[in-house]
């Protein structure tokens, strides 16, 4: 076993974990950041233009800048997944992928959320064959083709606008009668001639011969329950990653999000949480709130470690 005991291990390398690391470094906390996706889910976002000072950046570039910033202060970052966290008397033991173990006096959980599946028939079968969860990764394959985005959030709107730059036609299919995306996105969608929004409708089945060719709608659209298309992008929200909260017996809310206090501490001493995984910031899950919770957590942890 690695004999080194960190003051802090940050689990998750998205905006919350990386912001916490920047502050932790500046507070002089010896720490390690572990995460499977460097930069987090935001790295797959096509455009970030609502973070102060960032007018126009791809999610990938933005996340690389965060990683760079963290490294500049000398923090250790390890691209690895944590399997399990065990609480010991005065510390925490982390079992990493590959059998390695690490110990820390405090833990910050910033593992964010996982993309939700739609749950439509054929979704699994056609995954990678026309069903996608990442418009910036796979939009390229729909040049001059027809694609649909399922969902009504900022992510769904962003995906539809991104695809409209490539595809010939984009349907945005949403189960409610009004998109829940920011007005800014809605205005852009309304102005975009390639995008057609289909409200009050669910996709119940995805089908085709070897690849996606059509979807079945639960409400007729232009008198048809079938919609012909080449690809379906699923953007129906995300769920918190709950495994560690369960390992540690942390208090969570009805949606599985970790309950945090004003200083980002959780129901268990020595454990903090920040970002999309928490019920904090009035549940307004944005890069800016994740960064903020990360900073607040780092200060609180710094105070805790001094005691």
């Amino acid at each position: 076993m690695d004999e080194k005991i960190y003051d802090l291990i940050i689990i998750g390398a998205g905006p919350a974990g990386l912001s916490a690391s920047i502050y932790a470094s500046r507070f002089g906390i010896k720490h390690l950041v572990v995460g499977s996706l460097m930069g987090g889910l935001i790295s797959e976002t096509h455009l970030i233009d609502n973070y102060p000072g960032v007018e126009d950046a791809s999610g990938f570039d933005f996340s690389q800048k965060l990683v760079h910033h963290v490294k500049k202060y000398g923090a250790e970052i390890m691209p690895v997944m944590v399997r399990k966290i065990n609480k010991k008397a005065d510390r925490f033991e982390l079992a990493l992928d590959g059998g390695k173990k690490m110990e820390a006096k405090s833990i910050l959980l910033a593992t964010g959320t996982k993309r939700r599946k739609l749950g439509a028939k054929g979704e699994e079968e056609f995954s990678g064959k026309g069903v996608s969860y990442c418009a910036t990764c796979d939009g390229f394959f729909y040049k001059d083709k027809t694609a649909a985005v399922v969902g009504g959030s900022d992510s769904a709107a962003g995906a539809a606008l991104y695809l409209a730059e490539i595809a010939q036609k984009v349907y945005l299919i949403y189960r409610k009668d009004k998109l829940r995306a920011e007005s800014h996105w809605i205005n852009l969608i309304e102005k975009n001639e390639k995008i057609e929004v289909i409200f009050n409708t669910n996709v119940t089945e995805i089908s085709g011969e070897g690849k996606v060719e059509k979807v079945r709608l639960d409400t007729p659209y232009k008198n048809q329950n079938e919609l012909k298309l080449d690809g379906v992008f699923i953007e129906v929200g995300s769920d918190p990653t709950v495994d560690f909260a369960k390992d540690l017996g942390l208090a969570i809310d009805e949606g599985g999000f970790i309950k945090i206090n004003k200083d980002a501490s959780t129901s268990l001493a020595g454990v903090w949480a920040a970002g999309d995984i928490t019920d904090g910031s009035d549940k307004f899950r944005q890069v800016i709130t994740a960064a903020s919770e990360g900073a607040i957590a780092a200060r609180s942890i710094s105070n805790y470690l001094k005691k």
Partner: peptide, 26 residues
Amino acid sequence: QSIPNMKLFKGGKVAKDFIGFRPKEI
């Protein structure tokens, strides 16, 4: 149609598909 798309070829034929990022040990 989705990347990263990793295909394992054996004897010139696709034996298995792996779609999407996966951590090293897994």
